[in-house]
Nucleic acid binder design. Structure first.
Lengths: 400, 400
DNA sequence: GTTTTTAGTGCATTTCTCGGATGAATTGCC
DNA sequence: GGCAATTCATCCGAGAAATGCACTAAAAAC
């Protein structure tokens, strides 16, 4: 049987078959190398891409002409230390226009405006009761994007994409929030709502995924490729990076580790089940455990301070929470054999919690698996989500 | 800081940068299409690849000359039913030479010899006490490979690679078995041992990974890309396919779901821990549960028969085991949001077990996650491992 | 000051693809 | 039976892109 109706291969961006596609590919190789390695000479680029010096020169000439790349003033040193003509370094031109990242938490909205390479130019945070007022939070976010764009001196018309972080899983197909966790957001498609307000393309993803992306590119996970990012905040979620790419799952809701059931007859969880991990080890739960013995206004910030000061009670509670989370992570590590676990969220930087997780991994994971995985705190703190949102926007418009 | 020591990009197979690479890429597009769609005319290939008819003609001429492709005798019908010159169909030449797959279980060795497209030509199984006699099992495997090659009329010198299945995780770096589960195999590098006996390149992987690969390409998972294959046999393991590719993990030992701890004070497991999933739901455990009520010589085959006949006791035990395994899978599904779970191994085809797993997923996984995942029995039965081993060997020598 | 070493750039050459023209083989219509 | 229509395959010239080589430039080493 012949297959008569083979679909025409869409020529991706422009033409069909391939010859200028070869050139675009090579151009991409050059810009990609410049993006990851910083300023390089043409000779470096030739070595790095495997292309001939002639070709690279020609490509760079094109790229300079089109404004994607500029020659720097300072010359580097020649190849192996010593002699030879010093190279002329080129770097990516700071692309015109910019992007924005919006992080919508349960109680705050944080916005950053960045240039198209992802370098953040202006950033601000406002306290908003997002859970109660979904639409109001989006109004506020739109206002802040305009304000930050003004501060960064980027006209709104030059803003090319917005990345958005929401504290709930998003269904890949409908772009809707896929569970009833955010009561004030029912039947809202967050990306569309913000897009309607800003008239700029908006892409949304959940907080754990974006935190994972941020730590992978600009934080603790730099240089690794199999990372589990765990966000411990009002909820508990994971962003899973496998082979250097975010794993979103079939319908886009992967990473829901907060609802592993620990106790058949445990506390009732907002998900409707009982005894979920989230009911035992989320920030609100830990605060409610600690407050009777400390202060009714105890905050997570204060808890972290006490942890660093060596307060035994706080360290015990955080360590126990780490052990509890570590139980679940041990199973996940047995399945995925990752390279690193990055702890994020308001309590992710707690040393006691990291120790607790480490202890559980050593206790419950297979020895070879436990030995392969490092457990660290994230480096971006509560900025992780917004940095990830910016990264998402940068990815959307393309690095160049 | 400049990056002076950029690694030279190895020109993959032959030359350097990219011009004949363009052609090799196009050649691959043609052969790829032929591999998936069967015999096609040059015009079909042009439509399918997006290349021009001229280019395809030229590529096909080269491929015929190099023996990768042959023209068929029968002509097809022209494009849209009706008139026009009938096309000359071409198909992939049956590649010369062959590959072998070796499945080493705990109590058997199974060997298949296939042509280079993966079509199995000869296959046999022998009972061997592998656990006790590691070296003897390898001798037997080598003998069987020679015998099957003879039966398939492929001279040993034409056998180009061997894929090997071992019932234990393999460390990616050392190629050694990474836990003490197989006592008779300590300090053996299985692939090297078999390679020494056969003088043919051997690649090894564990049973769950190869079963997953087999079901993905030639079984229940055909057409999907995020699949968890669960093997229920003397142990319990998983092969995890994400994005159409096997996820092996940082050190290659991903998929160890058998050692999720269910009960702090449960049975002692061969891994040294207590209360592992494997102690509750492996084939030996289920048989030991059933034997007192049935027959001291009860086999897994008989158990499956009784399941299909509707025997209440057997169905209850298998269903409970499925629920237990499903508990662990629910957590994994929450993390990975897969499209399908394929049950393999000697008990994977049990309907009662599949029902039990389904029940646990619906009970313990997030509703959206549970709704997204299908649970099915594998289609390859106890041949899955050897089919996967052949697929591994085919991948090793390249599809063409 | 000469040699050595590395960087960057023209020019001729080769490789590869594309589009149109040409020939081939079959169906359908008169 | 003959002729148009249709589809398939190939030949030929044009154009695009990468490479190798030769050449100049610029600095350090001797």
């Amino acid at each position: 049987m012949n297959c008569r109706s083979l679909p025409h291969v869409s020529g991706s961006t422009q033409r069909r078959g391939s010859l200028e596609r070869l050139r675009t590919g090579n151009r991409r190789a050059v810009t990609g190398l410049l993006a990851t390695e910083g300023p390089l000479s043409r000779a470096d680029l030739a070595r790095g891409t495997g292309l001939s010096r002639t070709t690279v020169s020609s490509l760079v000439r094109d790229l300079i002409e089109s404004g994607h790349v500029v020659e720097t003033e300072d010359r580097g040193t020649p190849y192996k230390g010593g002699s030879g003509r010093p190279p002329l370094l080129v770097r990516l031109a700071t692309p015109s226009g910019g992007v924005a990242g919006v992080d919508v938490g349960h109680r705050h909205v944080r916005v950053a405006v960045a240039d198209r390479s992802g370098a953040i130019l202006a950033e601000a945070e406002t306290a908003v009761d997002v859970d109660a007022h979904g639409a109001g939070a989006l109004d506020e976010a739109a206002k802040m994007v305009r304000a930050m764009a003004r501060k960064a001196e980027i006209p709104m018309t030059d803003l090319q994409a917005v990345g958005m972080c929401v504290p709930a899983p998003i269904d890949r197909r409908s772009a809707q929030i896929s569970s009833g966790i955010l009561p004030g957001w029912r039947d809202l498609v967050p990306s569309e709502e913000l897009e309607r307000r800003l008239k700029i393309p908006v892409v949304a993803d959940n907080d754990a995924n974006l935190g994972a992306l941020a730590e992978l590119h600009h934080g603790a996970g730099h240089g690794t490729s199999d990372v589990i990012y765990v966000k411990v905040a009002s909820g508990l979620g994971a962003g899973i990076i496998l082979g250097g790419r975010l794993h979103r799952g079939t319908t886009g809701i992967a990473g829901e580790i907060g609802h592993v059931q620990l106790h058949e007859d445990g506390r009732v969880c907002r998900c409707g089940n009982r005894g979920c991990l989230e009911t035992e080890a989320s920030a609100p739960r830990l605060l409610s455990l600690l407050r009777p013995a400390y202060d009714d206004d105890l905050t997570t910030e204060r808890v972290l301070e006490l942890d660093l000061l060596g307060d035994a009670g706080v360290r015990r509670v955080l360590s126990d929470a780490g052990r509890t989370i570590g139980r679940a992570l041990a199973d996940l590590c047995n399945s995925l054999n990752p390279e690193m676990i990055v702890m994020g969220g308001s309590l992710g930087s707690s040393p006691a919690m990291v120790e607790g997780i480490r202890a559980s991994l050593d206790r419950y994971a297979q020895p070879a698996t436990a030995a392969a995985v490092r457990v660290v705190s994230g480096q971006l703190g509560d900025r992780a989500e917004v940095v990830g949102a910016v990264a998402l926007a940068v990815a959307r418009v393309g690095a160049i």
